[in-house]
């Protein structure tokens, strides 16, 4: 009898854990470490042992370390293309663009008119009328140049491939020599246009947002003939502007900024998860599997910050007082920028 009772109790426990057992929700703690006011910040040129991250916030740009030390900072003229290797500050109209290093030292000049754009550790110049893209090397010369018959809506690069989308529905993958590795013109919708797209770091996948009626998110995978569509999803609330897309740092996920929605795509399962967002994205940090996705955005009511799981489960949502934001994460160190303030956090998740 006793044995039966003991067995019953064990069975109840086992059943409970099998039926109701689930992962405990995340508990994240953000511990504020420092605050830096960009209006009053001291710049410590070349005095840091850490490799600084680039930032652009509220009319200023430069480099800072995750301990809050700013190693370089300038006021924005009109725009800046900036990454971990250097920057090009530009005015509304330029005949010559000047490449500088992370300490602001002159490196080279580019004799091209247009606006510089950095992506995937590569440097591009997009002509003012958005019909031409040129890749520039470290010494400021044009590696390749592509001219298109309609406006460019997207340029997104990895170290080996560049995704270029056009408003006529065409997208191209350009290799590092400037050769077209793959191109496709979508003609499946009533209105054809590419709204966004990107290529994964290893070149195995392409993600596109294209067309009106229907508007499709498509995941393409590489095969012997180029790329083919693995899966596609129709978007109910069609957007008619640029859709920010990208892949997670580990390449297992992708994200798509839609209208009032952020989609997170689990690539291997071809499963699309949705998170409600409003307005436009200002920054997204997406390390990958098992990690938290951080998103800052702006809508009519101002800024917000969301932390989400890759499943789309929202961990927290908070409003921020300001109009411009940025988000940088290096392991458990976080830098959140809100207008003139930079705030450093330690992130602890359980």
């Amino acid at each position: 009898m006793k044995v039966i009772k003991r067995f019953s109790v064990m069975l109840i426990f086992i059943t409970y854990f099998f039926v109701f057992g689930q992962q405990l929700p995340y508990e994240i703690t953000y511990i504020p470490l420092w605050v830096e006011d960009l209006k009053m910040a001291d710049v410590v040129v070349g005095n840091s042992e850490q490799s600084p991250e680039s930032f652009r916030l509220n009319g200023k740009y430069g480099y800072l370390c995750n301990n809050g030390e700013i190693t370089y900072m300038e006021d924005l003229l009109y725009g800046v293309a900036i990454d971990g290797n250097g920057f090009i500050s530009y005015s509304r109209q330029n005949d010559v663009l000047v490449i500088r290093d992370i300490d602001g030292r002159f490196l080279n000049t580019i004799e091209l008119t247009g606006y510089p754009f950095f992506s995937g550790d590569r440097r591009f110049v997009i002509s003012y009328d958005k019909n031409q893209v040129s890749e520039i090397n470290n010494i400021g010369t044009v590696v390749w140049q592509k001219t298109f018959s309609s406006s460019i809506t997207e340029v997104s690069a990895t170290p080996s491939l560049v995704f270029i989308g056009n408003v006529d529905g065409k997208f191209s993958l350009i290799d590092s020599m400037g050769e077209v590795a793959f191109s496709y013109t979508a003609k499946t919708s009533r209105i054809n246009a590419v709204y966004g797209g990107s290529v994964s770091e290893n070149g195995d996948y392409i993600l596109t947002v294209s067309g009106i009626d229907p508007q499709l998110i498509s995941l393409w995978s590489k095969n012997s003939d180029g790329y083919r569509v693995d899966a596609s999803w129709s978007i109910d609330k069609e957007l008619r502007r640029h859709a920010v897309t990208g892949f997670s740092e580990d390449g297992l996920f992708a994200f798509i900024e839609a209208e009032d929605e952020l989609f997170i795509l689990e690539i291997r399962k071809a499963k699309l998860n949705s998170v409600k967002i409003t307005g436009r994205l200002q920054s997204i940090n997406f390390p990958g599997s098992g990690e938290i996705v951080h998103v800052t955005g702006r809508d009519e009511d101002g800024l917000y910050l969301i932390a989400i799981e890759t499943s789309g489960n929202q961990l927290f949502y908070t409003r921020l007082a300001g109009t411009n934001s940025m988000f940088i994460r290096d392991q458990n160190k976080i830098i959140l920028g809100i207008d003139n303030k930079l705030i450093g956090f330690d992130m602890e998740s359980m």
Binding site: R56, G79, A81, G114, Y115, P116, F117, I126, S127, Y128, D129, K130, S151, I152, T153, E154, V155, R241, H242, V244, E257, G279, R280, L281, Q282, S283, I284, R298, N324, M326
Partner: peptide, 13 residues
């Protein structure tokens, strides 16, 4: 809409 997202590509248009 110029300036609505820093993640958009720059545009002379």
């Amino acid at each position: 809409n110029q300036g609505t997202s820093p993640l958009d590509i720059p545009s002379g248009l």
